[in-house]
Amino acid sequence: MSSNPASPPNGVSRRGFLSGSATLAVATPFVAHAAEQAAPGAAAKDPHAKVAVSFNINGKPYQLGLDARTSLLDALRDHAGLTGTKKGCDHGQCGACSVLVDGRRVLSCMSFAVMQEGAEITTIEGLASTDGALHPMQQAFVDHDAFQCGYCTPGQIMSAVGCVQEGHAENDDDIREYMSGNLCRCAAYPNIVAAIRQARDDMKEG
């Protein structure tokens, strides 16, 4: 298993600390140590208090102060200003929120952001090179018209990158099966398969 992000992260977040919640984070004591938590009978901490969390997104460090309930997806969109990752169901049923965490594709709606302390997260914004050249998977999606409305596309592309890296894109049957967690209501499926086939070969050469 690779722990590297899919490609060199661009290191720049255009809308970094948009929400302002990041600044709250610094002052909030972080509640990570079991020893502090485990005292039996200890009064529960205020569940509405903000919790600090730090992780890297596309190679850039973020420190956010979040409601513990904030999903990784909402943290990306509402707190890190990275709206490329999409919410399609919020229940792990559509795949639109797929990102890479420590190199593996996951559903960002199904994880609380506070659980991602120290993680390396790669989103669609981190896939193209800093010089603007598209990742082979992005280029293949363009070449094969692998989307229509484009809404599920960031999730499809992140999932596809993960799928190739996992070795589950060696033939069309595998691509179809291992990409079945990403719904496309416009139904670009045959084009998505063709795109992944092309990108798989380009990624091997590259």
Partner: peptide
């Protein structure tokens, strides 16, 4: 969703202890 406090114990004993009694 109801608000919750979040804990991340580092070993089993701590996790069991964190769960407390019911």
């Amino acid at each position: 969703m109801r608000a919750f406090s979040y804990e991340r114990p580092s070993d089993l004993q701590a996790a069991i202890k964190a769960a407390g009694t019911s």
